[in-house]
Amino acid sequence: MGKVYEELTDRLRSFIAEQPVYFVATAPESGGHVNVSPKGYPDTFAVLDNTTVAYLDLDGSGVETIAHIRDNGRITIMFCAFSGKPNIVRLYGTGTIITPEEPEFAELITKFGPHPGVRSIIVITCDRITDSCGFAVPFMTFQKDRMLLDEQKGRKDAQGQRAYKAKNNRESIDGLPGLRADETEPIHQHS
């Protein structure tokens, strides 16, 4: 049976910290495509306080999460146990996009491990925290993080990064605004 929590307990915090992958889900307000993104690199997620979490938003192939949050703020984060006791934790809430030029960015970036290609930090104020059984989630063994995203971002020169961001980060697949050009600079933002 699932349980609803008022805040992130020590047990939930420990569970979150142990997971090598988490999933981010958002959707536009009216129609359009629901987006679910897997996120690796456990050092890209941080619990800020009892009801606030954040994750490091790295350059990627699209900008759905940012566009959806700007459209309506809604976001859900899900963690699943692929080893040990079965469990699923979901954090429902309202997201805020913190881009590199915003004053709070400098302090928030210290909460994460080193990664190139940082676009923004997504801060989530949780209004519902739940866990459930996860009985049907399979056992899987974690081998290691794929470092391809970090490696790819480290290889692109400034002009290549600007072109990539202009093509892939300006609007969602449904045409919602993503990141403006001034929000993706400095292009070599590194955590």
Rank of each mutant, 00 (worst) to 15 (best):
M1S: 05
G2T: 09
G2P: 06
K3Q: 12
V4I: 06
V4A: 06
Y5K: 02
E7Q: 11
L8C: 00
R11Q: 02
R11H: 00
R13I: 06
R13L: 05
S14D: 08
S14L: 02
E18Q: 11
Q19V: 03
V21P: 03
V21A: 13
T26N: 03
A27H: 06
A27K: 05
P28R: 06
S30Y: 13
G32F: 05
S37G: 07
S37W: 04
K39V: 09
G40A: 02
T44C: 03
F45P: 00
F45K: 00
A46R: 03
V47A: 00
N50E: 05
T51Q: 10
T51L: 02
T51G: 07
A54V: 03
L56G: 00
D57S: 09
D59S: 10
G62V: 00
V63F: 03
E64F: 07
E64P: 04
T65E: 08
R70H: 14
R70G: 15
D71A: 10
N72H: 12
N72S: 12
G73R: 10
G73C: 10
I75N: 10
I75V: 15
T76N: 11
I77W: 03
I77E: 06
M78N: 11
F82E: 05
F82Q: 05
S83E: 09
G84C: 01
K85I: 14
K85C: 12
I88T: 10
R90E: 04
L91K: 01
L91I: 13
T94C: 09
T94W: 07
T96A: 07
T99A: 03
T99G: 02
P100A: 03
P100I: 02
E101H: 15
E102L: 07
P103I: 07
P103G: 12
L108I: 09
K111D: 12
F112H: 01
F112M: 02
G113E: 05
H115F: 03
P116Q: 11
G117S: 09
G117N: 08
R119D: 08
R119Q: 07
S120N: 02
I121A: 07
I122L: 05
I124K: 01
I124R: 01
C126W: 01
D127C: 10
I129L: 02
T130I: 11
T130H: 04
D131S: 12
C133E: 10
G134M: 02
A136E: 12
V137F: 11
F139S: 15
F139T: 14
M140F: 11
T141G: 12
T141H: 12
K144C: 15
K144L: 15
D145C: 09
R146C: 13
R146T: 15
M147N: 14
L149E: 04
L149S: 10
D150V: 03
Q152Y: 14
Q152R: 15
Q152D: 11
R155A: 15
K156I: 02
D157M: 08
Q159W: 11
G160K: 12
R162G: 03
A163Q: 12
N168I: 02
E171Y: 08
P177Q: 07
G178L: 14
G178C: 14
L179Q: 04
E183L: 05
T184C: 12
T184W: 06
E185R: 06
E185Q: 09
H188A: 09
Q189T: 15
H190W: 13
H190C: 09
S191Y: 08
